[in-house]
Nucleic acid binder design. Structure first.
Lengths: 227, 227
DNA sequence: GCTAGGCTTTGACCCTGATCAATTCCCGAT
DNA sequence: ATCGGGAATTGATCAGGGTCAAAGCCTAGC
């Protein structure tokens, strides 16, 4: 792909590429591709051999895994600026551990793993950043596992709501869901029905107010108290 | 700590140190300490500032997290040769995300994170190995999350049993549990009672036979069929 | 404006696995 | 050999949340 300036600027804000000089960036771009995905199309499936990783430019990607009987668990939802599948560069078996699907119409850039590894060999800084990114993700997963095992559905949903607003918020806060509720439910390992019921319960308790995809947190301290 | 040959040999087989030359290894050892832990003693608690990572030399360490009301989830059990907490070297907030406790009497070596980062700056190979280790762990966590959310307790227990034996085993296989059943139960996010009941059920079905801490898998294909 | 199809919500019911409680088992210490 | 204490087992009960089914809503497209 050719290197126009807008794109270079965009990449400069991605943690993986932050430390690269223009020469290296250009090299990365040479092996990159722009990928346009219509809504609901699959990018890759779990188990497929992996030789490229991705950056979300526009839209949303969901990473999910399927059980044998077709149940779906959303592992992660990625937004513009996020990268994914870059950790696979270092796995023995270079296969995608999960499947990836576009939620809405989405535009990605894909990068060659082998080429990027070469860059890494030259840039200690980038190595360190990549490791930082990986350990952040690792930490996030550990957190998620404790949430799943130590707490119940209501707890997870409230945590999710509170994560959407600034830490210091005390007063009323507004949240807009840009992702279907059923996807968020799966992300939290809750059935859509249960998700809906919990929202209803929280509303009845006067803690939140739900209007379609907009949720007002009426009583933030009260929500925090639930945890 | 001083560098006797036996220890050097041991470190050479640890993935993090595999690629280091003797000079670097000696340097690592200079900032390392031998730590002896009596059974059940806490090494560190979640949230504590972290500046050292560890290698298990003898015994077993369990990594776990606690909910507010004291419920415990075992995240990982580490055996001799395993390292842990090394990913924290790259986290923004250098704090242990989980707590660590010795199961039996245990001997560890601890290493200075700052010192090891310097080594990493010199050894591309070691960086790559560390990244490989991190992505392996990341992958394992992702797997665990799908197990937790997509499958039930019996499934997880059977998966655990099958993981203990060679891939290609078809005939009868023997497993010895060197860790208390209750710890394994927590590792699988099952209550000890349920753990015991499932073992009983599998025995009744003629798939396994349990004698204290020894489990015989009588019908490996049958177990695989359960998945 | 109206219809169709996909989300979302609501209701009824059920099942897995958690909890509480009581034994029993196992092992090390006396 | 006996005792004591933690681990493991077993039984009874219960609740969170999953499943199935039906109805309600909303929006895109005609």
């Amino acid at each position: 792909m050719e290197a126009d300036q807008a794109l270079l600027d965009e990449l400069h804000h991605v943690y993986l590429f932050e430390e690269l000089d223009d020469e290296q960036l250009t090299r990365v771009l040479r092996n990159s591709q722009r990928v346009s995905l219509p809504a609901k199309s699959l990018l890759f499936e779990a188990g497929q051999p992996a030789d490229r990783f991705y950056l979300v430019h526009q839209g949303q990607i969901k990473l999910f895994s399927l059980s044998i009987d077709g149940d779906e668990k959303v592992m992660e939802i990625l937004y513009p600026g996020n990268t994914f599948a870059e950790a696979i560069m270092f796995m023995q078996a270079k296969r995608y551990p999960v499947s990836a699907q576009a939620l809405g119409d989405t535009v990605l850039y894909s990068f060659d793993m082998k080429g990027f590894r070469q860059i890494l060999e030259e840039s200690q800084q980038t190595c360190f950043r990549l490791m930082a990114g990986m350990s952040r993700r690792l930490h996030a997963r550990i957190n998620e596992i404790s949430n799943l095992t130590l707490h119940n559905a209501t707890y997870r949903l409230v945590v999710f709501l509170l994560e959407q607003i600034p830490e210091d918020a005390i007063e009323l806060a507004e949240i807009h869901l840009s992702t279907p509720k059923s996807v968020i439910a799966s992300r939290l390992s809750i059935q859509p029905e249960t998700f809906s019921r919990i929202l209803t319960r929280l509303s009845a308790a006067g803690l939140i107010e739900v209007k379609g995809n907009d949720i007002s947190l009426l009583d933030v301290p009260g929500l925090r108290d639930l945890l």
